[in-house]
């Protein structure tokens, strides 16, 4: 019974992780400019990777490898916004105008 519940939960986490990664992919294609795309690219890293790693931790069970997945998530949470910020800042300093409603693209 416990085993079934655990496998079910692992499945749910995996599907959620896939869902947010998909959303992120759709967002990168649909959104108009580099700034708004940077928003959605970070989604794949936060919840996409977050749920996937939660599923991994649950599969591994109570052992030290599970702790490492939590550490992995921690480092992703530190590096991901730093990278997103670096991209956005580079675009800003190059003089890229953020897209707003009223611009003709989209």
């Amino acid at each position: 019974m416990m085993a079934t519940a655990r496998i079910g939960l692992i499945g749910v986490f995996l599907v959620l992780g896939l869902f947010f990664t998909l959303v992120s992919a759709v967002g990168v294609i649909r959104l108009p400019d580099v700034f708004s795309r940077a928003h959605t690219a970070s989604q794949a890293d936060t919840l996409g990777a977050g749920f996937a790693l939660a599923a991994v931790a649950l599969t591994l069970g109570w052992q030290s490898a599970a702790v490492k997945t939590v550490l992995l998530l921690l480092f992703i949470f530190i590096t991901n916004p730093t990278a997103a910020h670096a991209i956005a800042r580079a675009a800003y300093e190059e003089g890229v105008e953020p897209w707003t409603t009223g611009d003709d693209r989209r």
Binding site: F35, S36, H39, T40, S42, Q43, N80, P81, A88
Partner: peptide, 25 residues
């Protein structure tokens, strides 16, 4: 700044002293 960027919908573009330039979706 990192927390703001981690939250989807807001993105820190630039830090200027205590002023953050934040792009919001």
């Amino acid at each position: 700044a990192n927390s703001i960027t981690l939250t989807p919908g807001t993105l820190t573009v630039k830090a200027d002293n205590q002023q953050l330039y934040v792009h919001s979706l």
